[in-house]
């Protein structure tokens, strides 16, 4: 079975020979950067470098996917936000939004020709180059933000969160407006060859907003977005999701992905055997800072708790020790047989 078949069958709840280890989010490594002589800051603005780097985690370690882009600013940039790429910095820094474009209550004007703006064409190009490079043997993934998280990129977060309470109707109007561009971008990625699309709604766990607010303000637009993406989808949320998993599942994605704060065994019990649950390795504390034995233990724990796919709970921090990536893949082979 090829890694791609393993991943796609997992998302479609088909038969697999073993649990796959892959991600819906960033998973590039310093080892990959060294291999190709790429510095992180320039990989965000060059399709060839982006594709090479994205494929390197599979090529070096056998981690079963290639995911582009690596940052969370692509959609906001296309909608007019300035981005800081931290060019010239020697340390690894992910791009951030430099300037917000909106406040709550203001009308967002979605620019004409959205798909031609910012780095959307570049990400599409990188997706198709990943496909060529991996010859259809390995799944290519991409992601978009969820509407609420994207709103947090466009608007000052203080303003968004307080308005979610004080002026929910205005926030809802904005989220409603963001569904269309996000669906368009995700569909463009799928057309360029992305085998699966992750929707990252990390701004809305119950560490931040109440489950009640999630239900009225976040869930309706997630549902709508996911229903409009014509590719297998993963709904990812980090933070505390124990109170939210049923609602996440109802959003209708092919799979949900959770982090280490989620009690996967309990989630499996709540959602039943049919749900596809991915997770829930600690992307930093264990994969980067743990020993190979810790990594092995965590993989075993996740599989025992009932994940269908072993996935880090967030982007892997690039300075991951190479032996830990190898340990991760060995552990999946050892404990993941089906």
């Amino acid at each position: 079975m090829t890694p791609k078949e393993r991943v796609m069958n997992t998302l479609e709840k088909g038969r697999v020979d073993r649990v796959p280890a892959f991600s819906g989010m960033g998973n590039v490594t310093v080892a990959g950067m060294r291999k190709h002589g790429i510095d992180f800051a320039s990989s965000h603005t060059d399709a060839e470098l982006m594709a090479k780097l994205a494929c390197s985690t599979y090529e070096l370690f056998g981690f079963e996917c290639a995911v582009v882009p690596f940052d969370l600013c692509v959609e906001a940039e296309a909608l007019g936000c300035g981005v800081n790429f931290y060019a010239g910095k020697s340390s690894i820094l992910y791009p951030t939004i430099r300037s917000k474009v909106l406040s709550v209550g203001e009308e967002l004007s979605i620019p004409e020709g959205l798909l031609e703006r910012g780095r959307i064409p570049l990400v599409q190009e990188a997706i198709s180059r990943c496909g060529e490079r991996l010859n259809g043997e390995v799944a290519v993934g991409s992601y978009v933000l969820g509407p609420f998280t994207l709103a947090g990129q466009l608007i000052d977060l203080n303003d968004l969160l307080k308005s979610s309470f004080k002026k929910p109707e205005q926030v809802k109007a904005l989220l409603e407006q963001l569904v269309e561009p996000l669906a368009e971008i995700a569909s463009a990625y799928a057309e360029s060859g992305a085998d699966y699309i992750t929707v990252r709604e990390m701004g809305a766990p119950s560490d931040v907003i109440s489950p009640r607010m999630f239900k009225t303000l976040v869930q309706p637009y997630l549902k709508e977005l996911i229903s409009r993406i014509k590719a297998p989808t993963i709904l990812h949320m980090c933070g505390d999701t124990n109170m939210l998993v049923e609602m996440l599942h109802e959003c209708g994605a092919s799979a949900i992905s959770v982090e280490q704060k989620n009690d996967v065994a309990a989630t499996r019990q709540k959602l039943g055997e049919e749900a596809v649950i991915l997770g829930n390795l600690d992307a930093y504390g264990v994969i980067v800072k743990g020993s190979p034995a810790d990594v092995e233990h965590s993989v075993k724990q996740a599989i025992d708790a009932g994940v269908d796919g072993v996935m880090p709970g967030c982007d892997i921090w690039p300075e991951v020790p190479e032996e830990n990536m190898h340990a991760l893949m060995r552990a999946v082979a050892k404990y993941g047989a089906r």
Binding site: L161, K162, F165, K166, D207, I209, S210, M213, M243
Partner: peptide, 14 residues
């Protein structure tokens, strides 16, 4: 206690 979340806390801070 999960009775208040971040938006509520921000408004209290204001």
């Amino acid at each position: 206690k999960n009775e208040y979340f971040v938006p509520e806390v921000l408004m209290c801070a204001d």
